[in-house]
Simulated scan of single mutants.
Amino acid sequence: MCRSIKTLRSPYAETVTEEDMRAAALQYVRKISGFRQPAAHNAEAFDRAVEAVTAATGQLLGSLEVRGGAR
């Protein structure tokens, strides 16, 4: 599952949307939790994790400097 997460930084991706980051975060949380779709009693924790990973992804991509490229 995680092998299908695509690289989101330059030069591999021209543009990265919030949707791209959320899709990668969702795949990651699914893999780590072992749930494709969590039970109702785990849904809130699952969704919070997806949002946290999405935010961390945005922070990481915003902080990376690619040599020879724009930030």
Results as ranks from 00 to 15, higher is better:
Glu65Ala: 10
Arg67Cys: 04
Lys6Pro: 07
Gln37Ala: 11
Glu65Trp: 06
Cys2Asn: 13
Arg9Val: 13
Asp47Cys: 00
Ala45Gly: 09
Val50His: 01
Gln59Tyr: 07
Val29His: 01
Phe35Arg: 11
Thr15Ala: 08
Arg9Gly: 03
Gln59His: 10
Ser10Gly: 00
Leu60Ile: 13
Tyr28Gln: 08
Thr54Pro: 01
Cys2Asp: 12
Arg22Phe: 02
Val29Tyr: 05
Ala13Pro: 02
Val66Met: 11
Leu64Tyr: 02
Ala49Cys: 09
Glu44Gly: 04
Gly62Ile: 01
Pro38Gly: 02
Val29Trp: 04
Lys31Val: 01
Thr15Gln: 10
Gln59Glu: 15
Ala40Ile: 05
Gly58Ser: 10
Phe46Pro: 00
Ser63Asp: 12
Asn42Arg: 15
Ala49Asn: 13
Met21Val: 05
Gly34Glu: 10
Lys31Met: 04
Glu44Val: 02
Arg22Cys: 07
Pro38Ile: 05
Ala25Gly: 07
Glu19Pro: 02
Thr7Gln: 13
Ala55Val: 01
Asn42Met: 11
Ala49Asp: 11
Thr7His: 09
Asp20Ala: 11
Ala55Trp: 04
Thr7Ala: 15
Ser63Ile: 01
Glu19Ser: 13
Cys2Met: 13
Asn42Thr: 03
Pro11Ser: 09
Val50Tyr: 04
Thr7Lys: 15
Ser33Thr: 15
Arg48Lys: 15
Ala43Asp: 07
Thr57Pro: 01
Ala13Leu: 05
Ala70Phe: 05
Gly69Arg: 14
Ile5Phe: 05
Ala39Tyr: 12
Thr15Ser: 14
Gly34His: 10
Val53Ser: 04
Phe46Gln: 05
Ser4Gln: 13
Ala43Tyr: 08
Val50Lys: 00
Thr57Val: 00
Glu18Ala: 14
Ser4Cys: 11
Ala39Gln: 12
Glu51Ala: 15
Gly34Thr: 06
Pro38Phe: 07
Ala56Ser: 12
Ile32His: 00
His41Pro: 01
Thr7Asp: 15
Phe35Trp: 15
Met21Thr: 09
Ala40Phe: 00
Ala24Leu: 10
Asp47Ala: 15
Gln37Pro: 03
Gly34Asn: 12
Phe35Lys: 09
Leu64Arg: 08
Ala13Gln: 10
Phe46His: 12
Ser33Lys: 07
Ser10Trp: 04
Lys6Thr: 13
Ala43Ser: 06
Val16Tyr: 03
Ile32Ser: 09
Ala23Pro: 02
Thr57Asn: 10
Pro11Ala: 06
Phe35Ala: 08
Val16Thr: 14
Ala23Asp: 11
Val50Asp: 03
Leu64Glu: 07
Ser63Ala: 15
Asn42Ile: 01
Leu61Asp: 00
Glu19Gln: 14
Met21Asn: 00
Thr57Phe: 13
Val29Phe: 08
Cys2Gly: 14
Val29Pro: 05
Glu51Tyr: 06
Glu19Arg: 14
Ser4Tyr: 10
Ser33Gly: 07
His41Leu: 02
Gly69Leu: 13
Val16Trp: 11
Cys2His: 03
Ala40Val: 06
Pro11Ile: 03
Ala25Arg: 01
Asp20Phe: 08
Arg67Lys: 08
Phe46Ile: 00
Ala56Thr: 05
Val50Pro: 04
Tyr28Phe: 15
Thr7Val: 14
Ala55His: 02
